[in-house]
Design a protein around this nucleic acid. Structure first.
Length: 154
DNA sequence: GCCAACGTTGGC
DNA sequence: GCCAACGTTGGC
């Protein structure tokens, strides 16, 4: 059973184009328990991901990725020199987890957040539309994922 | 275990 | 760059 997700990234640090050229990447640096739990416990290889550009002009969904490795410890939390270093995470008892994601497609045109909002009725309950929603890894309903993907192909 | 203070996120 | 919303921290 495939699940669907939305993952946020600031394109100034990592964009859909970066993923396209890398083909695959590890999603390190998530330091939020809810997002960690999704990555550690729920995400499976093959799950489909909406790649969302946040703090961008405009913000919106830039393309699709898929999970290529299920949750495993975020080793950047152990690296003192890494900006995501967290002394509370131990090798023998990791605090933070990540997944790997692989590039699937970049939409011909980014779907702005504004467009998602304009279709609020169709996308009812989609987390990214909720005011104050800051979660960087969010579950998305299949029908919402498919609507966004169809919209992106147009 | 409450909650004020603080830091971060992210749209605008 | 502002600031609302929210998660986390730490004093009590």
């Amino acid at each position: 059973m495939i699940s669907y997700w939305l993952m946020k990234s600031e394109p100034s640090s990592y964009s859909i184009d970066d993923l396209k050229s890398d083909k695959n990447t590890y999603w390190n640096g998530v330091r939020n328990f809810q997002a960690r739990n999704f990555m550690r416990d729920t995400m499976r290889v093959g799950d489909q991901v909406l790649f969302y550009h946040s703090s961008a002009e405009p913000p919106g969904v830039a393309g699709v990725a898929q999970v290529s490795r299920a949750g495993y410890p975020d080793f950047t939390a152990w690296d003192k020199k890494d900006s995501h270093y967290d002394p509370k995470s131990k090798q023998e008892n990791p605090l933070w987890y990540m997944v790997d994601i692989a590039f699937v497609e970049k939409f011909p045109r980014l779907i702005p957040l504004e467009t998602l909002k304009a279709n609020e009725k169709l996308l009812k309950g989609m987390p990214v539309l909720k005011k104050g929603m800051r979660l960087s890894v969010q579950p998305v309903e299949k029908k919402h994922f498919e609507w966004v993907r169809r919209c992106g192909k147009k």
